[in-house]
């Protein structure tokens, strides 16, 4: 039986017919919508490469059944940049060498965006490392990732100050 799925992805409303309810949100993003920035790593919720924001909260897209999220707002790595300008978290990952091979990076960045929005880690490196523990990096770029989150936290706070 075909079921209809409506999603707002990176600001665009989409309507999809799903003829198989087994599709995860990750499958829909990658296979149906061509949004391959979100990576399939372990496909079991253990590596964090598939991290996206569902209604603003970071979630493993591989363990999110697409139909269960009908009507949700999804933000993926493709929706982060502001036009030609990188999002401050993206810029910080480049500035601080927060990656090597880059495969885990979209998930790391989406997770970091949510971590900073959660406003619980602040500028405490230990809390940042704990808060990023759902994202594995097999190249072990962890030192750079922590630096990038620290710098992005500062950059976003400055932006907010200027906007106020």
């Amino acid at each position: 039986m075909t079921q209809t799925l409506q999603l707002k992805i990176n600001g665009s409303d989409l309507r999809l017919d799903l003829d198989d309810p087994r599709a995860t949100l990750l499958d829909v993003l990658r296979e149906r919508l061509g949004l391959t920035g979100t990576k399939k790593g372990c496909d079991r919720g253990q590596c964090g490469a598939c991290t996206v924001l569902i209604d603003g909260r970071r979630v493993n897209a591989c363990l999110a059944l697409a139909l269960s999220h009908d009507g949700a707002q999804i933000t993926t790595i493709e929706g982060l940049a502001r036009g030609e300008d990188l999002h401050p978290v993206q810029a910080a990952f480049i500035a601080d060498d927060g990656f090597q091979c880059g495969f885990c990076t979209p998930g790391q960045i989406m997770s970091a965006v949510a971590l900073i929005a959660e406003a619980e880690a602040g500028l405490d490196p230990e809390r940042i490392r704990e808060g990023m523990s759902g994202n594995l990096c097999r190249c072990a770029a962890y030192a750079g990732i922590t630096e990038a989150v620290l710098d992005a936290t500062r950059a976003l706070a400055l932006e907010e100050e200027r906007a106020a």
Binding site: G48, R58, V59, N60, A64, L115, E118, S133, N135
Partner: peptide
């Protein structure tokens, strides 16, 4: 327990 992503779900 788990990770922030899993705890959100």
């Amino acid at each position: 327990g788990a990770s922030p992503q899993l705890r959100n779900a």
